[in-house]
Design a protein around this nucleic acid. Structure first.
Length: 423
RNA sequence: GUGAGUGUAGCUCAAAGGCAGAGCACCUGACUGUGGCUCAGGAUGUUGGGGGUUCAAGUCCCCUCACUCACCCCA
């Protein structure tokens, strides 16, 4: 193969036409739905001071310990390409003293260092929402609903929602102690990784895919049975609200989120089309994070959805029936014959564009044949032909490239006639 | 960070130690004011890179790089 002079950095993606259009469409859907739920867009930097992430995501989490793109800038500042969205948003809310409660949505690129595989990249895109300063279980339910509607709007049908509650600072320590005791009793049956996880983050043993570990974990004490009264009430509230909103979900009492800051409600959207990385996104409640980042106690809830994964999970467009042409772009080509007509073509292009009609002229091809070919290659809907004959008669010839039909159009009628061919 | 698989034309893939090929795409012409369709012709490669074995390597061996999938982790 011709080795390209330059190649993408490992784990990055190019979005070339028309895939970039799909990406923008997806962001448009996200923005529209978020707005409908009262969220407003926030844009924060792609990099932050490193401690914004180390103080929020948890020192023990893998994201912080081995997946961050961290660097020192020329001023010796410790900076990190954001591995996730929530900490930067919370930082911005505090720094700009936004009035709380506030609902925010965002999308953009995120960065984590790991070996790429299907659905996992070093640069990836997320769509997220954060409801900062809202404590009600209804809020959690609304956020789950929003994500659910997002996937449904995009035609993703094989997406299931899993729900769990992991308790709070009051009830989790007791549960954790009980879980660790259980795991120690079954230490011999656990894999090496899980034996390490037992001490560092015992809840994550639930995530292990190892057969033996799964069997052990099946009998392990579950969070849901060890919630304090407040957490149990909250969990019931979320479930009742989801039922009333007609959101279908499954309880997964093994569901644990990777980030340390979650408490109470956690949820995840799973698709069967994605391979091993089957999570389209997830989220939950994070009632302590704002405080951890130096703000006042502020109960909050949100989600982060993987845009790249969502695009992978979207249904394939059905192939075109045999013999049919793909739809044409809403684009007009002005075809010219000689130098004299070229001047008119340039003016006509300006006029069409002023009327909002996307227009191109092939300046490089002197022969009309090539101009027509350019127009066809670009998928243009029509050609507007400027030749000596047309100029003499005060008309343009308009050729519909889909049907091949051509007719003369008075110059003052060209804009509506071109537009009529767009569909 | 760990493991496995795959690297041949722009794309999809043949060539199982003996002349590097096909389809699609591309270019030119038939058609000097008309795309697609048809016909005729044309170009395309350091077989990812480097080393080794051999009379001979796309093919076997070693190293390296890239991609893919999985572990890990998560979006």
């Amino acid at each position: 193969m011709n080795t390209p002079r330059h190649s993408r950095p490992k784990g990055t993606l190019d979005f070339v036409p028309p895939v970039a259009d799909e990406l923008r469409h997806l962001e448009y859907v996200a923005a529209r739905l978020s707005t409908r739920f009262g969220f407003r867009e926030i844009v924060t930097p792609v990099f932050e001071h490193t401690d914004v992430f180390t103080k929020s995501s948890g020192d023990a989490s893998d994201i912080v310990t081995k997946e961050m793109y961290s660097f020192k800038d020329r001023g010796e500042r410790d900076l990190t390409l954001r591995p996730e969205g929530t900490p930067g948003v919370v930082r911005a809310v505090l720094e700009n003293r936004l009035r709380i409660p506030v609902r925010l949505y965002y999308f953009g690129p995120y960065f984590r260092f790991g070996r790429p595989q299907k659905g996992r990249f070093r640069e990836f895109r997320q769509y997220g929402v954060e409801a900062i300063g809202e404590a009600s279980p209804y809020v959690d339910a609304e956020i789950v609903l929003l994500g659910d509607e997002f996937f449904r709007t995009l035609g993703i049908s094989d997406c299931t929602t899993e729900l769990n509650s992991i308790g709070c600072r009051a009830c989790r320590p007791g549960y954790r102690k009980e879980l660790v005791a259980f795991l120690y009793a079954h230490k011999d049956e656990l894999c090496e990784d899980c034996r390490e996880r037992m001490d560092r983050n015992p809840l994550r043993v639930f995530d292990c895919k190892n057969e033996g570990c799964r069997e052990v974990v099946a009998d392990a004490p579950k969070t849901a049975g060890h919630l304090c009264d407040d957490c149990a009430d909250h969990y019931d509230g979320v479930k009742r609200a989801l039922d009333r909103m007609k959101v279908s979900y499954g309880i997964n009492d093994r569901l644990v989120r990777g980030l340390d800051y979650y408490n109470r409600t956690v949820f995840e959207y799973i698709s069967s089309r994605l391979g091993a990385q089957d999570s389209l996104g997830g989220g939950g409640r994070y009632d302590y994070l704002v405080e951890d980042l130096g703000g006042p106690p502020t109960p909050s809830s949100g989600f982060a959805l993987g845009i790249d994964r969502t695009m992978m999970a979207m249904p394939e467009k059905p192939p075109l029936p045999e013999g049919t042409q793909p739809p044409r772009e809403s684009l007009a080509y002005v075809v010219w014959m000689g130098e004299e007509e070229l001047k008119h073509a340039v003016e006509l292009a300006a006029k069409l564009r002023a009327e909002g009609v996307a227009t191109r002229v092939d300046f490089d091809a002197a022969r009309p044949k090539r101009q027509f070919r350019s127009a066809d290659a670009a998928g243009a809907a029509c050609c507007v032909i400027v030749g000596p004959d047309e100029l003499a008669k005060g008309v343009y010839s308009l050729k519909d490239l889909a049907t091949g039909e051509q007719e003369e159009v008075p110059v003052n009628m060209i804009v509506p006639r071109v537009r009529a061919l767009f569909r």
